[in-house]
């Protein structure tokens, strides 16, 4: 996978931990973009900027929130990527009448926003911009989505056991997305009376604390040999 290799190379070269900035910067480098940012959000109103590569990235993030319009707002609302390859086009100006001209004025010409999402779990938006217009190629769209997935995993990890412990998902064999994990997420949400995002974080925290594969923990929940209860992390039955 090219995206993984890029992150690994980037982390190796800069000597940093695998972190939001590292993944965001690696994506910008791989896709020849200008900058990127990361907004963690649980609703359009509750949000926090976790990273911005430069002042313009920060202001693009800020102004979409202030105006309540823009590719990032749309990506979060729809749960789907929004690829604005030319903010100065007729289509963009109609779609975002206030944001698009302001962005162009500030020298951003293309903006690509990717929701951080697993089904009904939505944790924010990963966005990138370029100072020139132009669409992403199909391979670049796919790569950007892989980067967004990396960011999502980092966010989940940071919430479940703090940053700096990323080895277990970097080596994940792909079982991560299996149906059983999604089913267990739904079950744990009910057991703990929390939303699905929180439930997924708790599942991962349990897997991490017990050094177990996530799929195994999820299977335990679905088979009802493992149950989460409020206060305690998990009760083996």
């Amino acid at each position: 996978m090219r995206a993984w290799a890029t992150v690994a190379r980037h982390v190796g070269a800069t000597g940093t931990d695998v972190s939001f900035p590292a993944v965001c910067d690696a994506c910008v480098a791989a896709l020849e973009l200008t900058g990127s940012w990361l907004t963690l959000m649980t609703s359009p109103a509750e949000r926090e900027r976790a990273y911005a590569s430069d002042p313009l990235a920060a202001s693009l993030e800020e102004s979409q929130f202030t105006l309540g319009e823009g590719p990032c707002e749309e990506a979060f609302a729809s749960g789907l990527p929004v690829l604005a390859s030319d903010l100065d086009s007729e289509e963009s100006l109609q779609r975002w009448p206030v944001f698009a001209p302001a962005a162009v004025q500030s020298t951003a010409r293309a903006l690509f926003a990717f929701p951080l999402r697993k089904g009904a779990v939505q944790l924010g938006v990963f966005a990138t911009y370029r100072d020139s217009a132009g669409a992403l190629l199909p391979d670049q769209i796919a790569d950007a989505q892989v980067f967004a997935d990396l960011v999502l995993n980092l966010v989940l990890d940071a919430q479940s056991h703090g940053s700096g412990h990323t080895a277990h998902w970097l080596n994940d064999d792909g079982s991560l997305g299996g149906a059983v994990v999604h089913q267990a997420t739904g079950m744990v949400a009910v057991q703990l009376r929390v939303d699905l995002g929180e439930a997924l974080v708790r599942l991962r925290a349990h897997a991490f604390a017990n050094q177990l594969p996530l799929a195994e923990v999820a299977a335990g929940v679905v088979n009802r040999t493992l149950r989460f209860s409020r206060g305690v992390d998990a009760d083996p039955l």
């Binding site: 089913q183 079950m187 679905v222």
Partner: peptide, 18 residues
């Protein structure tokens, strides 16, 4: 969209099963 929709179905199955 299709991939996420399917994930939501699995999540909903979990909610209902519980």
């Amino acid at each position: 969209q299709a991939l996420h929709s399917r994930i939501v179905i699995e999540q909903a199955k979990g909610v209902l099963a519980e």
